[in-house]
Design a binder for these strands. Structure first.
Lengths: 324, 324
DNA sequence: CTGAAAGCGCTTACAG
DNA sequence: CTGAAAGCGCTTACAG
């Protein structure tokens, strides 16, 4: 059988409770005893039994990661990347990760409820925002600790969340383009829903007006085309790829005739030339911060909800160019 | 506090052990008693405590999913998709999923070892093949149950694995192209490593020779170009995208001048036109089957290793056309 | 078909 | 600073 705390205790000549305390490096235990215990653990190759620890302590030390209930999550590199980041950060804190996925919100909610009620997780990191999500409601109503990656459209003040500053992201795109002497800039999107669109576009518009620049909102469709724009801000990488393709087939050269700047710095930016100039949103840090905030929330009584802003960087590649 | 098996027992007027048996629908228990127990469970809103069950039964009922120790896993939609499929299939069997990720093989191996030795998982599903992987060695040496998605290059006979028939995939591409009257076909790849390349190319070559078709192997690089080919088989979607781009910029039209057929049917096939003709490899079924095979392996004594072949489908889109 | 009891491997007041 | 004991919520031989 596997070696237990009792075996270690016997070998070290102490009580099992002492071993338990020594393992968690309790300040109650003398250094001498700790050393003895550590030696015994080592010699026997002791490994804790996770289930026993959970049962006795009441803490699961695992976080549930909730993916959106849509099929297109597979296509967005964001999710796999943040999952890795969450998992690796969690491991550093000796925390495990469980996942909740589903094709429908109902399925997903069921899995979330089950994970919590069967005491498999201490709480959740939710990887999507959007409006009035039943799962968020459930978590909120039951006072289950969770942190959201993104910006919720409601209950902003009650939800600990971590996100980029999307408004600033909108501003900075304009700022960069203005630096390159562009004066006719449109914002291109394929959706007008959601906080991401709203904030990026808001920032874009605001900054454009501040500079006295011509700006428009273009919604991508089959017969998308531009008029007198010399630069475009595109809401994400995938759409930017389509935009480049469309413009190219209309005889416009990117970036010679028109500059493009976009967001996320996903794999899509560097599959085919011209490689896209884009803002990197630091997914790794989003994930790592979400874990830390979650642990704060779980461990501190009366911890107030807070928003954490993760910085971004402009990655200049081949789709932006100064006007002469 | 949460309601336990004891509370249910009291309410139903039976012993806790009876409740335990009733819950797992043991044939030892009378239907009448089961009904009583179920009623009590329902009224009290009983939920099992996962940790207690694990500790008492010795089964964790969770599978560890091992991702490759590379950074580019984020860019391949395959991983997120198969993870969802594994998670959703597992849930149907009342099984949880844990994940193991890492930037280096050492990190990854450490997490795998920890998960197993701390009894967090019953075994693993490994999402990559490749040659002589230390993690695979570890699992094999310690007789830890695992199934591999893909085809290992060694120990084939000792490892339960699930994969597509890559050789057949190579053949079928040629077959389809020959049906479209193509007679000069090359195979395009960016790597000559790994079972996937070897088998797809092997099948391709074999079938081309069988038909007496001109065939060549082209390795993609900066100055990639074709000579007299009228059709190309490209090893995966992402590379196909690059190939299309390259050919287009050389003045060749796809599919009018040259047909392209590729593999995987990932998101990359339908971002920009021409949409790629591709083989769908049924990732959902790969994942679901991996879970089922894992459970067989875990539960049946002396279960022999086996390979399961998952079927594929040709998805005709815009990059293939008959020669006139 | 059901019950009583021991046990899974930890943690944590309580006592000293 | 350390030990003895109870307990976390299940499962599972054993007995009847």
């Amino acid at each position: 059988m596997a070696v237990t705390i009792k075996d270690v205790a016997k070998k070290a000549g102490v009580n099992a409770s002492t071993v338990s305390r020594a393992i968690k490096d309790s300040s109650e235990i003398s250094d001498k005893t700790k050393a003895k215990v550590r030696k015994a653990m080592h010699e026997l190759g002791y490994r804790r039994n996770a289930a026993a620890q959970v049962l006795a302590s009441g803490k699961t030390n695992t976080i549930g990661v909730v993916f959106p209930a849509v099929n297109d999550k597979e296509s967005q590199p964001f999710y796999m990347k943040i999952l890795s980041s969450i998992n690796e950060t969690a491991r550093d804190y000796d925390i495990s990760v469980a996942i909740a996925t589903g094709h429908t919100v109902a399925q997903l909610k069921k899995q979330v409820e089950l994970q919590y009620s069967e005491k498999r997780v201490d709480g959740f990191i939710v990887l999507y925002a959007g409006k009035s999500d039943p799962i968020r409601e459930y978590l909120l109503n039951n006072k289950i600790p969770f942190v959201l990656v993104g910006t919720p459209s409601d209950h902003k003040n009650e939800i600990t969340h971590v996100d980029n500053d999307n408004m600033l992201l909108g501003r900075e795109a304009v700022h960069h383009l203005v630096d390159l002497h562009h004066e006719n800039i449109s914002f291109v999107t394929d959706t007008t829903q959601g906080e991401v669109f709203e904030e990026r576009y808001h920032g874009f518009k605001d900054e454009a007006q501040r500079y006295g620049i011509n700006e428009k909102l273009l919604v991508m469709d089959r017969d998308f085309s531009v008029t007198n724009e010399t630069a475009l801000v595109v809401i994400d990488d995938v759409l930017a790829l389509k935009v480049v393709k469309q413009l190219t087939s209309q005889g416009l050269r990117v970036p010679e005739d028109i500059s493009i700047i976009t967001y996320n710095n996903s794999i899509f930016t560097t599959i085919i030339h011209p490689y896209l100039t884009t803002f990197d949103i630091n997914i790794e840090q989003l994930g790592a911060t979400a874990v830390k905030k979650f642990l704060d929330l779980r461990d501190e009584e009366e911890k107030l909800p807070e928003k954490t802003i993760i910085p971004f960087q402009l990655i200049e590649r081949e789709t932006t160019k100064a006007r002469i």
